[in-house]
Write a protein that binds this DNA or RNA. Structure first.
Lengths: 136, 136
DNA sequence: ATAGCTGCAAATGCTTTGCAAGGCC
DNA sequence: GGCCTTGCAAAGCATTTGCAGCTAT
């Protein structure tokens, strides 16, 4: 799944998002190709390094808008900050609790049998599997 | 697993924790019996309601000390705050993203086949399964 | 034109820290 | 007595918010 600049515009437009400079630039960084895991601070820093002018508040807003639009997935794994994943398909993660590195579990080798019924009045939204690892 | 006051003292002592008033009182609330999910703020409020004088800083310290001592387990599920679980055995959770309620998955009806090898140089520490639910 | 965005700074909320005073062993 | 613990207030951080000025459509 690789996106060049026109594809980025189509992608945003197809989700009903206005084509602002900041969204295009951030989307360019995020969806350039390959799966990415980012935090707001990381993406802001990367934007700055690329010569883009974006405020951190806008980075946060944009990450949330993209998430609402289904382009990103939030990952709650790290107590100190929120991660966003460009891979929105069903998959799971390794989280290195020492280095704070987040990596995908390759080739979906995790199967979960979800036999239990959810609490009354609720429906299952999403199943998250996080395998916490530490350096040997 | 029910703990009366003497048991609480034994429990703390057995983990090398000094028997201070605050630890005894907080442990009394936590390990009174039955599994509990608490946040620092909840436990502090509960302590206050029970007439105990404890600062929030001490509640935080105590929760971390108990966690290090293996009496509690941290749960990263809620981006806004850290939950602690008195059930330290292997089990998983439902998290209601609307009400922020955290409940155990009854009778361990979740099986995870962890086929994937962890990233090189790391070992698996813990597998967390969180099933996010929303009101129907 | 106008509804939606952006940027800044300030505010928020959870959590940690520094340090003096107090308590356990 | 000596080391660990507590409490308070202040600091720290990630994140959100208010709002004035812009901008895409």
């Amino acid at each position: 799944m690789h996106h060049n600049d026109e594809h980025i515009d189509e992608l945003l437009a197809s989700r009903g998002l206005r084509l602002t400079r900041q969204r295009r630039q951030l989307a360019g960084l995020l969806f350039r190709g390959g799966d990415r895991h980012v935090t707001a601070e990381m993406l802001g820093r990367e934007a700055k390094l690329s010569g883009f002018r974006v405020s951190l508040a806008t980075v946060y807003n944009t990450l949330h808008q993209f998430t609402r639009a289904g382009l990103l997935r939030r990952i709650n794994v790290d107590p100190a900050r929120t991660w966003f994943d460009t891979n929105t398909t069903v998959h799971h993660h390794f989280f290195n609790t020492r280095s704070l590195e987040l990596t995908d579990i390759p080739q979906e080798r995790v199967s979960v049998d979800v036999l239990p019924a959810p609490p009354v009045g609720t429906t299952i939204d999403h199943v998250d599997v996080v395998i916490r690892v530490t350096p040997r």
